[in-house]
Amino acid sequence: MASQGTKRSYEQMETDGERQNATEIRASVGKMIDGIGRFYIQMCTELKLSDYEGRLIQNSLTIERMVLSAFDERRNKYLEEHPSAGKDPKKTGGPIYKRVDRKWMRELVLYDKEEIRRIWRQANNGDDATAGLTHMMIWHSNLNDTTYQRTRALVRTGMDPRMCSLMQGSTLPRRSGAAGAAVKGVGTMVMELIRMIKRGINDRNFWRGENGRKTRSAYERMCNILKGKFQTAAQRAMMDQVRESRNPGNAEIEDLIFLARSALILRGSVAHKSCLPACVYGPAVASGYDFEKEGYSLVGIDPFKLLQNSQVYSLIRPNENPAHKSQLVWMACNSAAFEDLRVLSFIRGTKVSPRGKLSTRGVQIASNENMDAMESSTLELRSRYWAIRTRSGGNTNQQRASAGQISVQPAFSVQRNLPFDKPTIMAAFTGNTEGRTSDMRAEIIRMMEGAKPEEMSFQGRGVFELSDERAANPIVPSFDMSNEGSYFFGDNAEEYDN
Rank of each mutant, 00 (worst) to 15 (best):
D203C: 09
D128I: 07
G177K: 03
I119V: 15
G212Q: 07
L47T: 12
A286Y: 05
S353P: 15
Q235W: 13
A237D: 05
R416Y: 02
M222E: 08
R246G: 04
T92Y: 01
T171V: 11
M163K: 03
R74M: 08
I388H: 08
L226Y: 09
T6W: 06
D88T: 03
I116E: 03
F420Q: 06
S482V: 00
D88K: 01
P173F: 03
I425V: 15
E252M: 07
R243I: 08
G349N: 06
I425K: 01
R121T: 10
L56C: 13
M191V: 09
R26E: 07
L133Q: 08
G17Q: 14
S345K: 05
Y52Q: 00
D101M: 04
I36F: 15
L108A: 07
S335K: 02
A284R: 15
S3I: 10
N473M: 14
R470M: 09
P477R: 00
N142H: 11
V476I: 00
T188E: 11
I253H: 07
Y496A: 13
F304G: 10
E81R: 08
P277L: 03
R162L: 05
R99I: 02
W330S: 09
C279M: 07
S262L: 01
T134G: 04
I96R: 03
I365E: 06
T151S: 13
E24C: 07
F291Q: 06
R400E: 11
M159I: 13
A373C: 08
M66S: 12
Y219Q: 04
K357Q: 11
I365S: 08
M167R: 06
S359G: 04
P83T: 08
M238P: 02
K87E: 12
G485Y: 15
G17T: 08
N124L: 04
S274D: 03
N124W: 12
N319K: 15
I96P: 06
E494G: 06
I406F: 03
V155E: 02
I253L: 13
R8V: 00
R8F: 00
D439T: 01
Y289F: 12
W386M: 04
A336Y: 00
G86I: 01
L341D: 08
G404E: 02
N125K: 05
N417S: 09
I265A: 13
M440G: 12
W139I: 11
F291G: 14
N368V: 13
K31Y: 00
V190W: 00
G349V: 11
G37E: 15
Q12P: 00
I57M: 09
A251W: 07
